[in-house]
Simulated assay, not measured.
Amino acid sequence: MTQPTETPPPPQKDEFHTGAAMIFGGFLTVVALGLLLLLMNVEWTWEYWGGTNADKSGVLRNVILIIGGPLTLGFLGWRSFSAHRQANYANDQRRISISGLQVDRYQKGAQLLESGEMALRVAGVLTLRELVRTDRDDTLAMVRPLLASFLRAPTPPFQDRIRPLVEVEPEYIYRRKLEQEADILEALEALAASTEDDEVFARKTPLPAINLREAFLPQINLRNANICRWDFTGSTLPLSSFFQALAAHARFVKADLERANFMKAMLFGADFSRADLRSALFYGADVSSAHLQARYWDGWYIGDSWAWIDQIPMMPDGVEYPGILYAPGPSNRHREEHYLARTRGYPKHATRVRDGISSHHALP
């Protein structure tokens, strides 16, 4: 028969009591002073401390100062330490309170995005955008994926009204001017505003990608928007405007970009592999290091785009890049000046090495 094993008592916590520590420290200080005085053969007489005609009140005052000085300094140190701990505790409570409020606002904004009413969805987008504005560092990583998911999902009533017509008649979106819903426009604007331009032109750290794969967003307006590293793979974006947009390293793989406007856009390193670029405009667009192996080419006015001579974009087999080429200058000076100045369009001070073909030339 096995005997029951005794449960060991829980370990006791070692707690630091500031008051007890200060009293014990004061006692040790007095003891140390007493021992010091004994070692120095101090006599406890008025004549020793104050001379023949000793002022007893002055002697007493000096002795009290000798003993009370260290105790007073210790007390002041304890008060300072205690105030510092209280301030840290108050700051921690404030951060916890702010974090809780941010989570509540985030949840409220997410719930509003699921509403069937337009005004509530717009309110949800604006709530999330304000959340990023007030505390960018802690909320940006949460808000951007949520807004991107909102744009990818079927958004009533635009999707319900337009998509069935496009499935029956694909040319519908090319013959009609579509008015995007306010919630879509607000979400796109909020996403575009979530990245500072300085982060793009400094080209220091890669920006987090925004997933808009398979999105149905025909005729969207992203003029002057910051869409660097956005992923539009397989998206439907015909007749959309990317005029002067910052789209460095954006992905448009297999995207429908027929008649899209990329005039003066920054497309450094963008990927247009197998995209539909029929009649897309690229006047003054920076396509340096871009992947331009598009699926459809007829009518693509690529001749007025430009690139740095050492960063010529990748073209389909057998096709030479026909755009304008510029020299980056000694030690890349002109290239750095162009990006640091946040200039859109052609470089102002770089030397043109080669002119492009006519803007109305169609590639095979």
Score class of each variant (00 low, 15 high):
W46L: 12
Y48D: 06
G50M: 04
G51Q: 07
T52N: 10
N53R: 10
N53C: 03
N53Y: 08
A54F: 07
D55T: 14
S57I: 13
S57D: 15
L60A: 15
V63K: 08
L65F: 14
I66H: 06
L71N: 05
L73N: 07
L73T: 11
G74P: 07
G74S: 14
F75P: 03
L76P: 03
G77S: 13
G77A: 13
S80M: 15
S80Q: 14
F81H: 15
A83W: 04
R85V: 09
N91H: 13
R95A: 11
I96A: 10
S97C: 12
Q102F: 00
V103Q: 03
V103M: 03
Y106W: 08
K108D: 01
K108S: 04
G109S: 02
Q111E: 11
Q111N: 11
L112H: 04
L113H: 07
E114K: 14
E114C: 09
S115L: 04
S115Q: 06
G116Y: 02
G116F: 03
E117N: 15
E117L: 15
M118L: 13
A119H: 07
R121Q: 09
R121N: 05
V122G: 05
A123H: 02
A123D: 11
A123P: 01
G124V: 02
L126A: 03
L128D: 00
R129D: 10
E130Y: 00
E130L: 00
V132R: 03
R133L: 09
R133S: 12
T134M: 07
D135W: 04
D137Y: 07
T139S: 10
L140Q: 05
V143C: 04
V143G: 01
R144K: 11
P145V: 04
L146Y: 01
L146V: 05
L147D: 00
A148Q: 02
F150P: 02
L151S: 08
A153K: 10
A153T: 13
A153G: 09
P154I: 02
P154K: 02
T155K: 06
P156S: 09
P157C: 04
F158M: 07
Q159R: 09
Q159A: 12
Q159I: 13
D160N: 13
R163P: 05
R163M: 13
P164L: 10
P164C: 08
P164Y: 11
P164D: 09
L165A: 14
V166D: 04
E169D: 11
E169R: 10
P170N: 09
E171I: 06
E171L: 07
